[in-house]
Each structure stands twice: as structure tokens, then as C-alpha cells.
Amino acid sequence: MLNRKSRARPGHERASLYTEITDKIIAELEAGRVPWVQPWGTAAIKAPLAMPRNASTQRGYSGLNVLILWGAVIECGFSGQSWLTFRQALGLGGHVRKGERGTTVVYADRFVPQGERQLAAATGEEPGTIPFLKRFTVFNIDQCAGLPDDVAGSIVPPPSDQIEPQAEALIAATGADFRIGGARAYYNTTGDFVQVPPPAAYFEPINWHRTAFHELSHWSGAASRLGRDLTGSMGSKSYAREELVAEMAGAFVCASLGIVPTVRHADYIGSWLELLREDNRAVVRAASAASRAADFLLGFPQRPIASVDEGNEEAA
């Protein structure tokens, strides 16, 4: 909760929180650690690969909170990806253990002031909105005691033999013009198609799926879908911003399917750092857009997978 001073100065609070979050992400990138990629599956990590969720509501966390909570799981050695507020733990019949320190997550939204509502009603125009950002504290279920067994249980990852079939079913379910062939992966904005080299071109077969979801994340941003700015040329800030969105979105989709995320374009880290240093809201916006992209892709109903023939290698 915000204290009285921060309530009196909401703009200052937002700026401070944006800077605090951005500085932490910058420090991670400068140290060679990418916040949306974690060493899941190693002996040092107890928690299974999964998207973090609220153990009371079962709702998944999104945007920047995914990065914050993944980082806390790694740093603190938690065994699960489920979280609760102090009051939620009490409401479920349990409690947070004495002396435990919570993890700060953020909530961003916009509200319509009463004056704007009245003006909109009188003019028929869209009301103006004011953004707000606040922080609150959650605790991993490892930090709680007395919780019911069905709440305290860990998220169960999908069976390994179902991961690739599910990934291929999702690719097919999107209905995207998805072409296999050529020597490089990309999304063609003019022709509205994705092209990815054949699986045999990848050292690890699962890298083909990681690449596919990165490019489909770009595809999700077309004007007819989520409407992101895809006009930037390589080297521009808008290009770096879109690559940051696609990196995170691809990681969120992969984690949701049980695929360990990896960095698809490490050569862009320098441009991401430049972007974050210039705009302390860039990472918050990118993570939010990434969650929308991931939710958009994961929202397609999956049908039984069909074989996909290799397409034309020529780019449009």
C-alpha cells in the first residue's frame, strides 16, 4: 500500500517506481543476465518451469510481474511459482511465517476522473484517462504455513512427451501464414506471413519452436490483430522496442507450454539497454505488450496437430 506521502504525490511515486524497476532490469542485463530467461531445470533451481500465478485466485501474473517473480524464485530458492498476499493467506486458513520478507509486485491501470466522465457524457467524446501504478507485496507459498493441500501444491509442468506436440498444435491453431524454408527466420509485415527455416537447421529441435513463437509474437502485433508499431527499421528505437516485446512474449508462451525460454537475439541487448536508459517506462510497456501478445497466441483453441509441409523458400 502507498503511504500518505506517496498518495499526496502520485506522479512522484510512479516516476520513482518506474526508475526503481528499470534500474534493476538494466543492472541484470549489464551483468549478462536476461530477466525473462532463467536457468530452469538445473540442479540449483527447485521450482519447476511455469508462469507465476496467484494461489488464491488461480490468475496468472503478467507483464513485469512475471520477471519480478521469476527473479525472486531464483534468488530465494523457492520450490514453487504460486504466490499470495498476506490477507489471502489468512483467508485460506493459513498465514505467512513470522520474519518472512515479501516480494514487491506492481499493478498498472488507468482510471477515468469524474469530471472526464461528465464531459464525455455531454460531448459524446471519449473520456480522458489518468494512468496509475502502485505496488503491493506477495509471498511465495514456501513462506506460508497452514495452507490447504490443494493450495500449497506446486504447479505441475506438462509431460515432456506432450510439449512439442502442444507447441505444434498451437502454431497450427493460430491460422497464421506460416512458411517453413529458407535460411533465416522473420515476420514479413507486407505479406503478413512468418517464415522459419526447417527444424533440421537447428542444433536442438526445440529451438525451432522457440524461434517460431518469437516470430509469431511479431505476427501478433499486426494492425489487424494487436496493432503495435511494426514500422521501425533495424537500428531504430521502435525496432528495438518491438524486438524486446517479441523476446518477452516468446519467453512467456514457451514457459506456458513447458519450453525453457532462451534469448533469441542476444545481439540486441545493447539496443535494449540504450532504450531503457532513455525511457524509464520502456520495460514496463514492453512487458505489458508482451503479456498481451502471449495471451493472444495462447488464446487460440488448439486442435489435433496436422503435418506441416515445407513452404516456398522465397521471401515475398
Score class of each variant (00 low, 15 high):
Ser220Thr: 04
Arg228Val: 05
Glu13Cys: 03
Gly235Asn: 04
Glu164Met: 12
Val283Gly: 06
Gly124Ala: 03
Phe193His: 01
Gly32Gln: 03
Asp279Ile: 00
Asp295Cys: 08
Val253Arg: 00
Arg285Ser: 15
Val245Ala: 05
Gln118Val: 12
His214Gly: 14
Ala282Leu: 05
Phe132His: 06
Arg117Tyr: 04
Ala294Lys: 01
His214Trp: 12
Arg59Ala: 14
Gly94Arg: 03
Tyr107Gln: 14
Thr190Pro: 09
Trp70Glu: 13
Met51Lys: 06
Pro261Trp: 08
Pro197Lys: 09
Leu273Glu: 05
Leu92Thr: 00
Asp23Ile: 04
Pro52Leu: 06
Phe178Val: 03
Asp295Pro: 05
Arg117Met: 14
Phe213Ile: 02
Gly182Ala: 01
Val112Asp: 03
Ala50Val: 00
Arg97Ala: 00
Pro261Gly: 01
Tyr202Lys: 08
Arg7Phe: 06
Glu314Asp: 15
Val37Gly: 10
Tyr187Phe: 15
Pro35Thr: 05
Gln81Cys: 14
Gly299Phe: 08
Val263Ala: 15
Met51Val: 14
Thr137Lys: 10
Thr189Ala: 13
Leu29His: 07
Arg281Ser: 12
His209Trp: 07
Asn3Lys: 11
Thr19Met: 11
Ala294Arg: 09
Cys144Arg: 04
Met234Gln: 13
Ser217Met: 07
Tyr239Ser: 01
Leu67His: 04
Arg33Tyr: 04
Arg59Pro: 02
Arg110Ser: 14
Val73Thr: 05
Arg285Phe: 06
Met51Cys: 12
Glu13Ala: 15
Ala289Ser: 02
Gly270Trp: 09
Gly93Asn: 07
Val112Gly: 00
Thr190Ile: 11
Arg110Phe: 10
Asn140Cys: 14
Ser271Met: 11
Leu29Asn: 07
Tyr202Cys: 02
Gly181Met: 09
Asp177Val: 09
Asp150Lys: 11
Ser160Arg: 14
Phe111Ala: 02
Gly102Val: 07
Arg4Lys: 13
Pro127Ala: 05
Arg135Asn: 00
Asp229Ile: 07
Glu313His: 13
Ala249His: 01
Ser6His: 11
Leu69Ala: 00
Ala50Asn: 04
Thr123Ile: 03
Ser154Glu: 02
Ser82Pro: 11
Ser62Lys: 12
Phe193Trp: 14
Phe132Ser: 02
Tyr107Leu: 07
Ile269Lys: 12
Leu216Ile: 05
Ser256Ile: 02
Arg292Gln: 13
Tyr202Pro: 01
Arg4Cys: 10
Arg59Trp: 09
Val196Arg: 08
Gly115Leu: 05
Pro39Cys: 11
Pro165Glu: 08
His95Lys: 13
Thr19Cys: 11
Ser307Gly: 15
Arg292Trp: 08
Ser236Ile: 07
Gly93Cys: 00
Ser79Tyr: 03
Leu170Val: 01
Phe213Gln: 13
Glu310Cys: 07
Leu275Cys: 04
Gly250His: 06
Ala152Arg: 06
Val263Thr: 15
Glu247Ile: 01
Ala47Ile: 06
Leu92Arg: 00
Leu119Ile: 09
Ala290Val: 01
Ser217Ala: 15
Leu90Trp: 03
Ala145Met: 01
Asp142Tyr: 08
Gly153Arg: 11
Tyr18Asn: 07
Leu216Gly: 10
Cys254Asp: 00
Lys46Thr: 10
Ile130Thr: 15
Thr123Glu: 00
Pro48Glu: 08
Gly60Leu: 10
Ser238Tyr: 07
Leu298Phe: 07
Leu64Ile: 15
Lys46Pro: 09
Ala8Trp: 04
Gln195Glu: 10
Val73Lys: 09
Thr262Asp: 14
Asp161Asn: 15
Val284Asn: 08
Asn3Cys: 06
Glu28Asn: 13
